[in-house]
Design a protein around this nucleic acid. Structure first.
Lengths: 245, 245
DNA sequence: CGACACCTTGATCTTTGTCAACATGTGTGG
DNA sequence: CCACACATGTTGACAAAGATCAAGGTGTCG
């Protein structure tokens, strides 16, 4: 079974050390950016960092100094509390920005962990602020990125606050499908990089519930699951799940 | 019964049209801001707007052009979905910023409604971006504000994803207590500006559940409730609720 | 091949939601 | 200023969704 998606995946070795030549360009940067602006960005994004699967990129409580763009790979962010609660609050894939929660208090608020071997662009925050000062379009783009993060979180609040378990999983899968397809992968077939327990935590459910709903979706013919490999048979039916009360 | 807190509340009429003289200064603006910076800010924050109780400040879908600082009063923000779901995603009190979710797509994402007669400072977004370009400290402060919004939302995700109903209400009340006390009001005694159904929606619960938990908290002697008037008898006991598993 | 982590499934229990009745509060018009 | 109507909040009985507990299955990696 040729489950491998690697033929379409980003080959790190081919990537030059430049935003202009990065194939995540369209995801990560504003449209119609001038050559000059791109050069400015390249100046601060010299540092790449490899993160192995299971390795933590930054820990909650660590002093904040940089944000990260996912170049390749997959991450999860975990928020802990004094009472020992722990919850997955986000999954990040290529072209997405991590660490913006650290700006508020000069301290990262969550742990961010690679779920597979990954590479990130390290963006020194004080350098970034300098660039933003001189370049209006980058500044505006950065604000959009932060605002998009707020939107994303608010949509998750909605999901957690008002949806049933099966709806939550459907939304989760549809969202992954959308994000994979935006990156040139199939919107019908992909690998889950995270464990069932990560999904459960993210969706505010228990792992057994996730397992059961996967089974029931499969029984209904909405999808096929073989461990982490998901084939969505009918995106429409998954969507209908949300509309029917 | 003299429940009135108006003796401590901000008297709008006394406020001058200036950030420098605004008594929300400490909540809203960065510490140690220079006179020059303040003057710059005052330039873009000339517009105040009164919003009557029940009135909508901005609607989801409206073109985004400004963010708002609450000068006085109390707001809620509602996120709707295609499927007709609707959820309260935030309550805003004086000194807090509203509308930053609109930056991402040049469109407000939620409805924001005054829960009592209120006044806001309107901050034209393109003016703000201009100022940020020229003033590093204001730029940094603005980023902190957006980042704080992200933190807040992530904490709500945690609450919705991993806490029991009574824990959610306890966190909600403790959070209000904290915010009131930061504004010079009693941390033990305050009015809820929102309805039970707003609270329920925000906490991802049903109104009957809220009602029951208020009753049980009262039975336990944690607090006294008379409609919207809350007297917290023991902040400690409410906090302990969270620690005991 | 075996150990271990991860996942699935079933039986049962708990928490919260639902439905219904009633109480209380608020605002309006007589 | 009272009476009524309507919105809002409370309480109880019951139902349902999801959690918990327990057992067993499957895959992965040394």
């Amino acid at each position: 079974m040729a489950y491998s998606l690697s033929s379409v995946s980003f080959n790190i070795n081919q990537l030059k050390n430049s935003c202009a030549s990065c194939n995540l360009h369209a995801l990560c940067l504003p449209m119609g950016m001038s050559q000059h602006d791109l050069e400015q960005l390249d100046e601060i994004i010299q540092t790449k960092r490899r993160v192995h699967a299971g390795e933590t990129l930054y820990h909650a409580g660590e002093p904040f100094h940089a944000i990260y763009a996912v170049r390749s790979g997959f991450f999860k962010s975990l928020l802990g509390s004094q009472e020992g609660r722990e919850q997955v609050i986000a999954f990040h894939m290529s072209g997405e920005i991590m660490g913006m929660d650290g700006i508020a208090s000069d301290t990262y608020m969550c742990d961010t962990v690679a779920l597979e071997d990954s590479e990130v662009c390290l963006i020194q925050y004080h350098h970034l602020e300098n660039i933003l000062q001189s370049c209006n379009s980058i500044q505006h783009h950065f604000h959009k990125l932060m605002s998009r993060e707020i939107m994303r979180d608010q949509n998750v609040m909605m999901l957690l606050g008002s949806m049933r378990a099966d709806e939550r999983l459907a939304v989760f899968l549809l969202n992954l499908s959308l994000r994979y397809s935006a990156r040139g992968f199939s919107r019908h077939e992909f690998y889950l990089r995270m464990s069932r327990s990560d999904i459960a935590s993210y969706l505010g459910l228990k792992i057994e519930t996730i397992s059961r709903i996967f089974s029931s979706f499969q029984a209904e013919g909405y999808l096929e699951v073989h461990q982490k490999h998901v084939i969505i048979k009918s995106l429409e039916k998954l969507q209908e799940l949300l509309h029917q009360e």
